[in-house]
């Protein structure tokens, strides 16, 4: 911009930004990048799709066997197998999308440097690819749920609401990570551990009612906790307690919602600020 300013004869050229260029172009670009990535990863090789489905299923198989047979956990939890599988798939979407988006801006250096397009497309397209995978995996999950005796209910139709919130959280975290990584390359290593920590700290392998009183503060700051719990109530077990029941106050839902808002606002603010110069930092 300053270079343009030194030559007054030229008209002002808008630099690259986070979202500029019109909503339609934004969505088209996101869709194009995500579907290209998806096709490259999963449709070119028969093994690719099978593997993307096998990975969470294998993890589920091992974790379920170890938890029920060796650690003797989950015997008193109704539909424990369904719960673990459902949670692993939902958490898998969050962790895979965020992990893949950490290095996504330097990873698409070839287009960042050459064309002017809204930069936010890059992390969002990674999340969208993850969402395609999630939808394919959910088909397998629902087959499993019905096969193991979970009765289909009308509340299943409310699942997209949970998925939308999960998508918002994932997009927020992905955007935040991708913009931080441009400056601080340590983020890649930190997030590797943090994602694993979140896996254990969230009610993925255990339901919320098993969290002891001394660790319940974790439920107040983790946006995944109410999402997974609500997913369980809607899809698997309507009698299961919600985070509000466990924590004992409305903060069980307000706390995580605040965290979600803070993540998204910070992510957008940082990304918007960094977008014009991001090509120079690569």
């Amino acid at each position: 911009m300053s270079a343009v300013g030194s030559a007054p004869a030229l008209r002002d050229v808008p630099g690259p930004s986070a979202v500029g260029g019109g909503a339609k172009r934004f969505f088209e670009l996101t869709w194009l990048l995500a579907s290209t990535d998806f096709k490259l990863n999963y449709l070119d090789t028969a093994f690719g799709y099978l593997w993307s489905l096998m990975r969470p299923l294998l993890l589920f198989g091992v974790l379920y066997t170890v938890f029920t047979k060796v650690l003797r956990f989950g015997g008193d939890i109704p539909h424990y197998a369904d719960l673990v599988l459902f949670n692993i798939i939902l958490y898998g979407f969050f962790s895979e999308s965020t992990t893949r988006s950490v290095g996504c801006i330097p990873g698409s250096e070839h287009i960042v440097r050459k064309t002017q397009f809204p930069r936010l497309v890059i992390p969002l397209s990674v999340v969208l690819t993850g969402l395609f995978n999630l939808c394919l995996s959910l088909i397998a999950v629902f087959v499993f749920l019905i096969a193991t005796g979970v009765t289909p209910r009308l509340t299943w139709l409310a699942l997209p609401l949970i998925l939308a919130l999960l998508l918002l959280l994932t997009a927020g975290v992905s955007t935040l990570l991708s913009v931080l990584y441009v400056r601080f390359r340590d983020i890649a290593q930190i997030w590797g551990v943090l994602a694993l920590a979140i896996f254990y700290a969230s009610p993925v392998l255990y339901p919320v009612e098993k969290v002891p009183h001394s660790l319940q503060w974790l439920l107040l700051i983790n946006p995944l906790a109410p999402l997974l719990t609500a997913g369980r109530r809607l899809v698997i077990d309507p009698n299961a307690p919600s985070t509000v029941d466990i924590v004992g106050s409305a903060w069980g839902i307000i706390g995580p919602a605040l965290v979600l808002v803070v993540i998204c606002v910070t992510a957008f603010w940082l990304f918007n600020r960094a977008a014009p110069q991001v090509a120079e930092e690569l």
């Binding site: 938890f67 650690l71 003797r72 956990f73 340590d186 290593q189 930190i190 590797g192 551990v193 694993l196 920590a197 254990y200 700290a201 392998l205 255990y206 098993k210 969290v211 002891p212 001394s214 660790l215």
Partner: peptide
């Protein structure tokens, strides 16, 4: 960080396995 990583993993697993899973 490389040194801290297994320590962090340990801290989390320890909390979860002894307090939540009660193993």
């Amino acid at each position: 960080w490389t040194i801290a990583r297994p320590l962090m993993l340990f801290a989390i697993l320890y909390l979860v396995f002894t307090r939540v899973i009660r193993f």
